[in-house]
Design a protein around this nucleic acid. Structure first.
Lengths: 136, 136
DNA sequence: AAGATGAGTGGTAATTATTACTGATACACT
DNA sequence: AGTGTATCAGTAATAATTACCACTCATCTT
């Protein structure tokens, strides 16, 4: 979004960015759409997708390709890891120190040009755990 | 597939399993379908999906929820990490020692019941790198 | 200020991956 | 052989995402 000077900071982009910045929940495109629609009721879902994609390409937000069926987006771009609830699907940050060195390790043993890595933990979040208890 | 005794080892399941075992390429459901179809031309895509899902639930194969748009499947079930080519999308194993201990670390600092983790490296595979060179 | 240019938008259609449904098979057990 | 049920092939339906297109609106040019 800052890469090409022709790229405009439209109202839609500004609000998408603001709303994404308000939450720490790694919303899906549809969830961002719902959030943004409260302020811009006529915005199109395609606009949200297009701009989330664009912003992630230019690096001002993060696109999370975690498990589950939907992509998720994150306004926090400094490297960090995630944990996903296998029951409800939500994704939280997890404060494990980032291992910068394993990229080099990976580069040494593979034929790939290694560009990055991501760790995704999986488990059951406390809410889902509580719900499961309640049923028993 | 060995969990419930009612579950039959049909020809379809046997061949899906055999074909998946032959490759190390983490094929998508569609790729498995193509492989299997050479031996069982009349098999349905739904059957492939159904059985891959089933086998991953019972733990005899692994379902990889890596980046990209498709799920991938792996006959190697012992824990290991993966690297994905950002250019062509293929997924390879990467021989980095599995860190059993970080699950505990994660459990300590999060409210989740941590069940596992997966590391996905991303980069450019040697083939794509070569192709890029050729263009320049 | 008016017109041209082109990025961006909203609405909708199309695509892709996956799942669900359905009637037909085929095995297992009597 | 007859019945019950798992599984199948084929197809329809769903979900997420992307593509398309006519129109809007900044920005630039005269």
């Amino acid at each position: 979004m800052q890469l090409t000077p022709e790229m405009r900071l439209t109202t839609q982009r500004q609000i998408i960015l603001e709303e994404l910045g308000k939450v720490t929940s790694h919303p899906t495109a549809n969830e961002v759409y719902d959030m943004v629609r409260k302020r811009l009721p006529r915005i199109g879902l395609g606009t949200v997708y297009r701009n989330l994609e664009l912003m992630s390409e230019t690096g001002i937000i993060l696109k999370l390709e975690v498990g589950g069926t939907q992509k998720r987006f994150d306004a926090t771009i400094d490297p960090h890891y995630h944990i996903r609830c296998l029951s409800c699907g939500k994704v939280d940050d997890i404060e494990i120190p980032v291992m910068e060195d394993i990229n080099k390790t990976a580069a040494d043993i593979s034929k790939y040009q290694v560009l990055g890595h991501h760790i995704e933990f999986s488990g059951i979040c406390s809410e889902c755990n509580d719900n499961a208890q309640a049923v028993n």
